Measured scan of single mutants.
Amino acid sequence: EPLWIRPDAPSRCTWQLGRPASESPHHHTAPAKSPKILPDILKKIGDTPMVRINKIGKKFGLKCELLAKCEFFNAGGSVKDRISLRMIEDAERDGTLKPGDTIIEPTSGNTGIGLALAAAVRGYRCIIVMPEKMSSEKVDVLRALGAEIVRTPTNARFDSPESHVGVAWRLKNEIPNSHILDQYRNASNPLAHYDTTADEILQQCDGKLDMLVASVGTGGTITGIARKLKEKCPGCRIIGVDPEGSILAEPEELNQTEQTTYEVEGIGYDFIPTVLDRTVVDKWFKSNDEEAFTFARMLIAQEGLLCGGSAGSTVAVAVKAAQELQEGQRCVVILPDSVRNYMTKFLSDRWMLQKGFLKEEDLTEKKPWWWHLRVQELGLSAPLTVLPTITCGHTIEILREKGFDQAPVVDEAGVILGMVTLGNMLSSLLAGKVQPSDQVGKVIYKQFKQIRLTDTLGRLSHILEMDHFALVVHEQIQYHSTGKSSQRQMVFGVVTAIDLLNFVAAQERDQK
């Protein structure tokens, strides 16, 4: 057995438009009618409502009807409940999964919650491996369901041993009777949507819809739904939504950006999952974080739909894509998950301010006199920076000697690579993860907040409520011999709460 199987392995699926269902090699399930009293909570997966979006479509000038398939009504709160249950049931049916076995899954959280929910009911041990950027709410729900959680670096490539995929496979090879159901490759993922989600949409719309818009992560949702719609409703256009920084969209030119990270969760990847059939997507749109969270908040405030950030991405694209539809036509959007997962993220004004998705003037509360002053007023001194090749031991000596707790790590040209902190280095040394002679590049981390000289002290204040420091950066445009230009970030300084307090105190003292 291989040590790991690539999540982007070539698909062996034989589905073709027009091929009889009787030739399918898979076990198919028909939607079942729910009894009045459910035998367990797993029976509350599927049969989610279709809700008309009344205000947002009109606000953006849509002539067509805009409908939302509300997947956050599933038992675990997301569309991923469907595939989690289906993968477990299919693994039980073919004898792969037996009582007492362990389920391991690399996930952005929602599939993990679905699997942990099913594992709690069915009696399996469950280990979820997820990147650090995923919300604390997801972690809390997983723990409450009895799952064990392993976190991995957000910026690790999918084929790196440190990625959530790599760590999951390492655990599988170490733990007896453990299984990775593997949402990236498992046919049960798109089949769950082909058999149930798509049929529900067709039934709820009486077979009449002209466009379907869905955000894409593993691709199982859009693949399964689109294949069924292509068979039953061939005139329906399928629109895929991919965040900026991901590479799922086609044509490839759409993916060209210097951005590699994004805040919206559960969609987009740096590889093409095996289950994603991009041939059934008629057109791709890219979405960005700001519009995703703005539209998610709009869905909550104006439509009462308590959905997550990827739902915002989907609707932001839908109001663009559906401009081509006329009166009497219908566009369906998939709202994948609930706001429950993001209470401390985009639902929080403070978080939105820190990330730059909300401006101070958007909030009406009274601010102190210094709130709208610029960061450049602080008069920061030149920063202490270190090269990635310097040793951890030497870096600790320098920081202690100069009285700093942290320093930016830059390359020879001064471009920011990340940050090192005294606390992080000492804990890594004590844990045996690094040696004093190791290069400081081994303990770089990139989960820090950046701020510009033109940003306000109010925004800085919000950042420092949650973080010990902020890195002050400025952009530099560099022209190359080819005539092309590129933008790079340079370090201007490091600012802490002490710097802000000293500035405010000094100004008030001078005024007296």
Rank of each mutant, 00 (worst) to 15 (best):
I238S: 02
G240F: 02
V241R: 02
D242C: 02
D242R: 07
P243N: 02
P243F: 05
E244R: 07
A249D: 02
A249V: 02
A249N: 02
A249L: 06
E250W: 07
P251F: 02
E252Y: 10
E252C: 05
E253R: 11
E253Y: 07
L254F: 02
Q256S: 11
Q256Y: 09
Q256T: 08
T257S: 12
E258I: 12
E258M: 08
Q259C: 09
T260L: 02
Y262N: 02
E263N: 06
E263W: 08
E263V: 06
V264C: 08
V264L: 06
I267T: 08
G268M: 02
G268T: 06
Y269R: 02
Y269C: 02
F271I: 02
I272S: 07
I272A: 04
T274V: 04
D277A: 02
D277I: 07
T279P: 14
V281G: 04
V281D: 06
V281R: 07
K283M: 09
K283S: 09
F285C: 07
F285S: 10
F285I: 15
K286V: 04
K286I: 02
K286F: 02
S287L: 09
S287C: 12
N288A: 11
E291M: 15
A292C: 09
A292Y: 06
A292S: 06
A292F: 02
A292G: 08
A292P: 09
F293S: 02
T294D: 05
R297Y: 02
M298F: 07
M298C: 11
M298N: 10
L299K: 13
L299T: 15
A301Q: 07
Q302C: 12
Q302S: 10
E303T: 10
E303P: 02
E303I: 02
G304C: 02
G304A: 05
L305E: 06
L305R: 05
C307L: 06
G308R: 02
G308E: 02
G309I: 02
S310T: 14
A311S: 15
S313C: 09
A318T: 11
A318G: 11
A318C: 10
V319G: 05
K320W: 02
K320A: 07
A321N: 02
A322M: 06
A322D: 05
A322L: 05
A322Q: 06
Q323F: 13
E324F: 13
L325E: 02
L325Y: 02
G328A: 02
C331R: 07
V332S: 02
V332L: 14
V332A: 12
V333I: 14
V333Q: 02
I334F: 12
L335W: 02
L335G: 02
L335Y: 07
P336S: 10
D337C: 12
S338Y: 06
R340E: 10
Y342V: 02
Y342F: 08
M343V: 09
M343F: 07
K345M: 05
K345Y: 02
F346Y: 02
Q354F: 08
Q354G: 02
K355H: 14
K355P: 02
K355A: 06
G356C: 05
G356P: 05
F357N: 06
F357T: 02
F357V: 02
F357E: 02
F357L: 08
K359V: 09
E361M: 08
E361S: 12
L363I: 10
E365M: 15
E365F: 09
K366I: 15
K367C: 15
K367D: 06
P368S: 11
P368A: 08
W371Q: 14
H372K: 02
R374G: 09
R374V: 09
V375P: 06
Q376I: 04
Q376D: 07
E377I: 08
L378A: 15
L378R: 02
L378V: 02
G379L: 02
S381C: 02
A382I: 02
A382C: 04
T385L: 10
T385V: 04
V386Y: 10
V386N: 02
V386Q: 05
V386H: 07
L387Y: 10
P388R: 15
P388Y: 10
P388Q: 12
T391V: 14
T391K: 04
C392Y: 13
C392R: 02
C392H: 04
G393P: 06
G393M: 11
H394G: 02
H394R: 06
T395V: 11
T395C: 02
I396Y: 09
I396T: 12
I398A: 10
I398E: 12
L399Q: 02
L399A: 14
E401G: 11
E401C: 12
K402N: 11
G403C: 11
G403S: 14
F404D: 04
F404Y: 08
F404G: 02
Q406F: 02
Q406Y: 09
V410F: 10
D411N: 10
D411C: 12
D411T: 13
E412H: 15
E412Y: 10
E412R: 06
E412N: 08
A413H: 02
A413E: 15
G414P: 02
V415G: 12
I416G: 10
I416M: 14
I416C: 14
L417R: 11
L417H: 13
L417G: 12
L417A: 07
G418I: 02
L422Q: 06
L422Y: 02
N424I: 09
M425H: 02
M425T: 13
L426C: 13
S427G: 13
S427A: 09
S427H: 09
S427R: 15
S428Q: 15
S428E: 14
S428G: 14
S428D: 15
S428N: 09
L429A: 02
L429W: 09
L429D: 15
L429N: 14
L429C: 11
L430V: 11
V434S: 02
V434L: 10
S437G: 14
S437H: 15
S437F: 12
D438S: 12
D438H: 08
V440G: 10
V440E: 05
K442V: 12
V443H: 02
Y445N: 07
Q447V: 09
Q447I: 10
K449A: 15
Q450N: 15
Q450G: 02
Q450L: 11
Q450I: 14
Q450V: 08
I451A: 07
I451E: 02
L453D: 02
D455I: 13
D455A: 12
T456G: 12
T456Q: 02
T456L: 11
L457N: 07
R459V: 06
S461D: 06
S461R: 06
H462D: 09
H462L: 11
I463R: 08
I463W: 05
L464W: 10
E465F: 04
E465T: 02
M466A: 10
M466Y: 11
D467M: 08
D467W: 10
H468P: 13
H468R: 11
F469M: 02
F469R: 05
F469A: 13
F469N: 15
A470E: 02
A470T: 12
L471D: 02
L471W: 15
L471N: 14
V472C: 09
V473M: 13
V473S: 15
E475P: 02
E475F: 09
E475I: 12
I477K: 02
Q478M: 09
Q478T: 12
Y479C: 11
Y479F: 12
H480K: 09
S481Y: 08
S481I: 10
S481D: 09
T482C: 10
T482D: 07
T482M: 11
G483A: 09
G483H: 08
G483M: 11
K484I: 14
K484M: 14
K484T: 02
S485L: 11
S485K: 02
S485C: 12
S485Y: 10
S486R: 13
Q487W: 09
R488P: 15
Q489C: 14
G493Y: 14
G493L: 13
V494G: 06
V494W: 02
V495M: 14
V495E: 02
T496D: 02
A497R: 14
A497N: 11
I498S: 15
I498T: 15
I498A: 15
I498Y: 09
D499S: 04
L500H: 15
L500V: 12
F503Y: 04
F503I: 02
V504N: 15
V504T: 02
A505C: 02
Q507L: 08
Q511L: 10
K512C: 13
K512W: 04
